[in-house]
Each structure stands twice: as C-alpha cells, then as structure tokens.
C-alpha cells in the first residue's frame, strides 16, 4: 500500500464548498527515462483518480506522465449530506488503491 495523504475538513455546513487535497506516494515513471545500462525504464504511472461522494462521482482526472512523482491533486466539492468520500487511484501494473474518509454535514 502506498502512503496517501488526504486533507479535508471533518465537518462542514450543508451547501458549503470544501477544498480537498490529496497526495499519494508513487514514482510516476515516465517511460522516457534511460537507466544506467542505457535501456529505457518502462512506464509506471497512475492513470486515473476518482472521488466518489456517497457512491456518486463528483470529480475524476486522467493523468499523463507529465504529472510529477507523488501526484498531488486539489479540487473542491459542494457538501450535501453526511457520508463517505472514497478516493481511488488506478494505474499501470495493476496499481489500485482506495482510501475513504467520512464527512459530517451539519
């Protein structure tokens, strides 16, 4: 499991726009970098990220090798009801990781 950091408020008022920041540990090998023996290191990146809010997709991105190692993403969403936020990263070589956080809406 790669280390993932997710920063969001624990509680929020209904209808408030909250900012979410995520960072996951990943090399994001571009597939263009030569190794010491002259061969090119194969591509190994995170290609997709999605954020589900009570099983409804609110934000998703496709990433290219041009994203820096340990991809950082910051986005926002409107709170509606208390529930679970699920963050999923998928990538090359079968990489998949899901993290969940609960959000209390008052």
């Amino acid at each position: 499991m790669a280390r993932a950091l997710i920063n969001l408020p624990r509680t929020a008022r209904r209808g408030e726009v909250i900012e979410i920041r995520t960072l996951i540990q990943h090399v994001m090998e571009t597939g263009y970098r030569p190794r010491a023996d002259g061969s090119v290191a194969p591509r190994d990146i995170i290609t997709h990220f999605t954020c589900l809010y009570n099983n409804e997709e609110v934000f998703s991105v496709e990433l290219a090798p041009a994203i820096a190692a340990n991809p950082f993403l910051s986005f926002s969403l409107v709170t509606a009801e208390s529930g679970i936020l699920a963050f999923t990263w998928t990538g090359d070589n079968g990489f998949e990781q899901t993290e969940t956080r609960s959000l209390t809406v008052t």
Binding site: T30, Y53, F59
Partner: peptide, 29 residues
Amino acid sequence: NERNPQPHVITARLGPRAGRARLSTRMRL
C-alpha cells in the same frame, strides 16, 4: 504542453457538485 514528450498533462471531469471549477496539481516540465 508544447515541448514535453507527450502533449497531455491532465484531463479532469467535473460537474455542478464540484462547486468551484478549480484544480491544482504538480507537473513536470
């Protein structure tokens, strides 16, 4: 981007539930 090996950097899909059309990340140049 113009001069990286590939032109794509990031493509995001969002909607009214995002509240703000704002996105931050870190990229390679």
